[in-house]
Write a protein that binds this DNA or RNA. Structure first.
Lengths: 213, 213, 213, 213
DNA sequence: AATGAATGAGGTTTCATTCAT
DNA sequence: CATGAATGAAACCTCATTCAT
C-alpha cells in the first residue's frame, strides 16, 4: 500500500515474531504460516514479504530469544560489579532453563532440514551468535582472572551445549525425572554446569573478579 | 521376500531401515516414504505395514544407531578387562562423533513436532534408551570405584548431552571451526568430555579399575 | 486343503453371502472384503476363490434376494388358487418394500462402475432375472385374463421399476415423508403400484382369475 | 483465472463440473479427482478447494443436470400457454431419457456409500430437488384442472421414479430389448409414463389446460 | 485349498510457497 | 504493498486384488 521505511518494516517483522512466539508457546509446535499470519492480522502472502520461509520465521524468533539472553549477559559483564558463577547460573536459569520456549524452539531449529533455511539467513544467525559469544566470552575473561584467552567463548559454548543436550534428552523431564536417581531437567542442568565450571574455572576456590584496570 | 514369521518380519523392518539409512547418509535429509520404499524395493503401502509414519521410520533408525553404541559399550563393560576414560572416549568417537549420521539424525528426531510420532513409539524409544543408560551406568560404576550409586547413569547422560549439544552448535564445524579459537566439533567434544570426566571421576588422579572380585 | 465338490463349494459361497448380508444389514454399506472374510471365518484371499471381486459378492447377494422374491411369487402363481393385486402387493411389501436390505443393496448394485463386474457375472444376473420375470409374467397372464401376451412381464418390470425408482427418491422417507403432502416411501409405492395396476389390468373392475383350463 | 469474487468462484466450480461431465460422458465412470483436475486445467489441490470429495463433485454435477430439467420445466409451466402430457413427455425425453449422462450419473449418485457424502451436501441436494419438485408440482396443478392439491408433486415424483427405475432395469437396453416382447428403455419409459398419466390425470379424455384467469 | 503379506492405485488432506490482482 | 486463490508435493490412508507359501 505504502512503502514502509526500515523502522515500520522492522516493526512488522517483530509483530509477526510476536504472533509466532505466542503460538509456539501455546502449542509447543511450529504453527503453520496461515495461523501465524492470522494471529498477526495479516494475510498469508504478506508474511512472505518479511520472511523467506516458515523456517526463517522461527529461526528469527529463536535468534530473538538468544539475543535477549546475550544482551542481558553482555550488559552485565560490561559493568565492573563482581560477577560469579551463581549469577551466571541464575541468568541461564531465568532466560534458558526455566523459559518454556527457549530450548524447545531451539530444538526445532536444530532439526530444520538441510536446505530449508537460506544460506544467508543461516549465516546471519551464525554471525550474530558468534559475535555475542565472543563479546560475552571476553567479558567472562575480564571477570574471571584464571580464564586464558579464548577460554571464555569455549566455556560459554560448552555450557550452552550442556543445556541444549540435556534438554534434548530430558525434555519431558521438566517436572518428572526420567531415570532412577536422575533429577529434573533443570536439576541436572544446574548440576552439570556446576561441575563443568568447577573444573574449568575452579570457581569454588580461586576465580575472582580481576582487579579493575 | 514374504515375511511369514516374526524373524522374517523383523528382517524386513531392518531392510527398510537400511534403505532409510542409506538415503539419510546421502542427502542428510529425511527422504519421503515413497523414496524409502523404492530404495528398499518395496511398495509404499508395504512400508506402512511396518511403520506408522515417516517419523517413526527415522526414530527407529536412530534407535538402531543408539542400540549399536550401547550394545558395544554394555558388552565391553560386562567384561572384567580394565576400562578407562580413553576407551570410553574412543567408543564415543567411533560410534557417535565420527559417525556421519548418528548425531545429524538424532538432531532431526529431537525436532520432530509434538504429535508427529505416536505415543507408543515415543515411549518405546524412551524405554529402550533408559534401559541401556541404566545398564551402562551400572557397568561404569563397577569399573570406576569412586562413582557413587546412580552417578554412572548421570555421567553418561551428561556426556551424551555434551556431544548432542555441541553437535547442534557446531554441526557445520566438523572441519572448520566457527569461533576464533574454537576447534572442530570433534575437538571440542573431546575436550569438554575430558573436562567433565576429569571433574566427576578425577580420572586423571584416582579413578582406577576396581580390583577384580 | 481338500478338493471341494460342487455342494461344498456352493455351501461356502452361501456362507460368504450370509456374512456379507449381515454386514450390509448392519451398516447399510458394502463392507470391505477383509471384514466379510473375517465375518465368514475365512482369510481375505479365500473369498477370492469364490468370487471374482467385491462387486460380484454383492451382486450375488442381491441376486439371492431377488431369487427369494421370485421363487415365492412364481410358486404362488403356479397354483390355481385365485391370485389378485392385493396378494401381489403383499408379496412385494413383504419381500421388497419392507425388507431393509433388498432395495438399498439393489441401489448399490445399480451404481457399480461400468467394468467393475465381469461380463459373465453381469450376464448371469441378467439371465436369471429375465428367466424369473418371464416365468412370473406368464404366471400373471394365466391369472389375469385381460393381460395380453407379453404384458405380464411388462407389468412386472414396470412395477419393479416403480419400487426401485421411488426408493431412490425417497430412501430416507421410510418413516418420514420428504415433500409436503407426500407419504412415506412405502405409502407412495403402494399408491403408485395401485394406480399403475388399476390402469393396466383394470383390477378394480374386471381382472379376474381365468377359468381353470 | 483467479477467482476473486463469488461469480468467478462459481464460474470455476462450473468449469470443474464441465470437466467432470465430459469425463463421465466419455467413460461412463466417475473419473478420479486427479483426472478431473487435469481436464479442468487445475491442480488437484485446487479442486479440493471447491469440492470436499469426488462424490460431491458428481453429486453437484447430477444436481446441475436436474436443475437444467426443472428450470426448463418450471419456466414452461409458468407461462399460460396450454401444457399437456405430450409436451411433458417430450421435455423428459430430451433432458432425461435421451440424455446420455442424466440417468447413468444419477444411478451412480444413488449408489454412493452412506457417509461418502457430507451431510450438508446431501441435504443441499435434497433441498434443491424438493423445492423444484414442489414448484413444478404446483405448476402442473395450475395447468391440469383435475389435479387435486398436492397431486402435482406426487405425479412428478412417481413419473421420475418410473424413469429412474426403468433405467436401472433396462440400462443396457437403450437399443436392444432384454426380455422377449419388451421394447427399448425409452419405449418402455414412454409407455409406462403414458399409462400412469392416463390413470392419474385422465389425460386422454378430460385433462385440459385451465382457462386463463 | 487356504492363507495373509504384499501390492499399488488413488482418495484425502495439509501446507509451504507463489503469483495475479 | 497486501492479498488470498492457486499450486503441487507429499504425507497419510484405505482397500481391492494378487501371489508366494
Amino acid at each position: 500500500m505504502r512503502a514502509l521505511d526500515g523502522d515500520e518494516k522492522e516493526a512488522k517483522r517483530q509483530a509477526i515474531l510476536d504472533a509466532a512466539d505466542a503460538l509456539f508457546a501455546k502449542h509447543q509446535n511450529l504453527a503453520n504460516v496461515a495461523d501465524v499470519a492470522k494471529a498477526a492480522g495479516l494475510a498469508k502472502g504478506t508474511v512472505y514479504l518479511y520472511f523467506q520461509s516458515k523456517e526463517e520465521i522461527y529461526l528469527a524468533l529463536h535468534l530473538r530469544h538468544v539475543e535477549q539472553f546475550f544482551t542481558r549477559l553482555i550488559g552485565r559483564l560490561e559493568s565492573d560489579q563482581p560477577f560469579g558463577f551463581d549469577e551466571m547460573q541464575s541468568l541461564a536459569q531465568e532466560h534458558i532453563l526455566d523459559a518454556t520456549t527457549y530450548l524447545p524452539l531451539g530444538a526445532c531449529c536444530i532439526g530444520f532440514a538441510a536446505g530449508a533455511v537460506a544460506k544467508e539467513a543461516s549465516a546471519h544467525f551464525q554471525a550474530r551468535l558468534t559475535a555475542w559469544l565472543e563479546a560475552a566470552g571476553q567479558g567472562l575473561e575480564r571477570h574471571f582472572q584464571k580464564l586464558p584467552r579464548g577460554e571464555g567463548v569455549r566455556l560459554l559454548q560448552h555450557s550452552y551445549a550442556i543445556m541444549v543436550g540435556l534438554h534434548s534428552l530430558l525434555r519431558e523431564a521438566r517436572s518428572v525425572p526420567k531415570c532412577e536417581g536422575m533429577g529434573t531437567f533443570q536439576d541436572e542442568a544446574r548440576l552439570a554446569l556446576t561441575r563443568y565450571w568447577t573444573h574449568v574455572a575452579r570457581i569454588d576456590e580461586s576465580v575472582k573478579p580481576r582487579a579493575k584496570k
